[in-house]
Amino acid sequence: MQKIGLYLPNHLGDAVVASSLISWCAKSKLKPALIAKQYLKPLFHKDPRISTFIPVNQNYTGIVKTIRDLNKLNLTVCLVMPKSFFSAWLVWKAKVRRRAGYSLDYRKYFLNDIIPMYEYHHQPLRQFYFNLAYPYLPGSPPPYPDLFIPPADINSFSLNSDSVEQSADRIGIDPGAAYGKSKSWPDQRWIDLIKNLEKKYKVVLVGIRDLSEWEKNFSSVINLSGKTSLNELPYLLRNLKLFISGDTGSMHLAAALKVDTISLFGSSSPVWTSPWGKGRHIIIYKNLSCSPCFKKTCPKGDMKCMNSITIEEVISKVDQLLQSKI
C-alpha cells in the first residue's frame, strides 16, 4: 500500500479546502502524513485519519528537522499543493519518491509528476488540488470538506463560555482581508452594518485584525477580533447561524463547518475561491469589467468593485437567510 503525504497550502482558506483530500484518502483506506505550516497544526493534528503532522518552519533548524522527519516516513508520493519553489525543493531534499505538483518557475527540476501550469482561476480552488490527486486516489473526490473537530475542553479556552454557545440569532463577522486592501470593504461600511445588525441579532467580531477601536460604536457586540486562536476558532464558528466576511480564510473555515455565509467579493474571483460547504452561501459580487484583478491594491484607485456593495444589500441577504431559520 502506498504511503502518501499531503503538503497543504500555506494560507488558512486554501488549506481548509485542500484538507478535503484527507477524507478522500480515508475512503481509500489511506492515512496520509500532513505537511503544513506550524500555525495550522491546531486545526489538523488531532485528526485520526492522518498518520502524523509534520510542521514546516522556514528557519535553518526547522528546515533540517522537517527534511529529517519527512525522510523517516519513506513516503511513496507527496502531493505538493503550495506553488512555491521551496515546497518542491523540500520534498525533493527529503527524498520522497514521487513528487506531484504544478510546474512553476524552477519547480520542475524537483518534481517528477508534473502538471503544467495554466489559467487556474477559471475553476473552483478545490479542483486545482483534486487534479494532483486523481492519479493516486481511486474513486471520486468528496462533495464537501469534512473537517475533524474533536470534543472541546471549553474551560481551557481564553473565550468565555457565552462566546461559544449556540444561539439562534448569532452572526459572526470578520471585516479583515489578509491579502490586501483591494479585498476589503470600507471600515465605515462594516461599522454601519454592525450597528444595524446588533438591533436585531447577536453579533460576534472575529479575525486576526484587532478591532478594539471599533467597540465605542456598538452597545452589545462581542468583540473577539485578534483574541481567538486557531485552536478555538472552529468551536466559535460552528455555533453561528450566519457568517459575514470578505474573501477570507475564516469564510472557508465557516463554510467547511456547515455555517451559512454571506461573502463580499471584489478583486478576487467567486469562481475560484467561493465558500464550499453544506450550508447556504450567498456571494455579493458586482462582476465589473475590471474584476477580478487579483491585485493587492486597486489599479484604478477607486475600489469600485467593493464600494459598489451597499449596506442595504447585505442586510437584505442577512434577513433572507436568518428569517427563514429563526
Rank of each mutant, 00 (worst) to 15 (best):
G101H: 11
R238I: 06
C305E: 07
E198A: 05
E312Y: 05
D319G: 11
V221Q: 10
R98C: 10
L288I: 00
G172S: 03
I149Q: 08
V164P: 15
L193F: 02
F85C: 01
P138L: 05
G301L: 06
P116R: 11
L132F: 01
H281T: 11
L159F: 14
S269D: 08
K31F: 10
L321C: 12
N160Y: 14
R99C: 05
R209K: 14
I194H: 03
L73F: 04
S291C: 07
I284H: 02
K300F: 13
R97H: 12
I67W: 05
A177N: 01
F148A: 06
M1P: 06
I171M: 03
Q127F: 03
C25I: 07
D192G: 09
I115A: 01
Y60F: 13
N59I: 04
S220H: 11
V96W: 05
C25W: 01
L237C: 07
K181A: 12
R170E: 04
P234W: 10
K181Q: 12
A168V: 09
K300E: 12
N223V: 06
L236Y: 12
L322E: 11
Q58N: 08
S229T: 13
N71P: 05
S23W: 06
E213K: 14
D192S: 14
S308F: 06
G180M: 01
D169F: 09
G176C: 03
Y106N: 10
V16C: 03
Q320W: 08
G5T: 01
G207R: 09
D113E: 13
P275Y: 07
K41L: 10
W92K: 14
H45Y: 08
S308M: 11
K304I: 06
N59G: 09
N59Q: 12
N307I: 02
K83H: 11
K241P: 09
V16T: 00
K241L: 07
I208T: 11
I154K: 15
C305N: 09
A100K: 03
A256V: 08
L236I: 12
W190E: 00
Y134K: 10
S220P: 02
S158N: 15
T76S: 15
D174P: 02
T228L: 06
D210T: 08
N71A: 06
Q166W: 14
S19W: 02
I54M: 05
K296F: 05
T228H: 07
F265R: 02
L257H: 07
E119I: 08
V271T: 13
K46H: 10
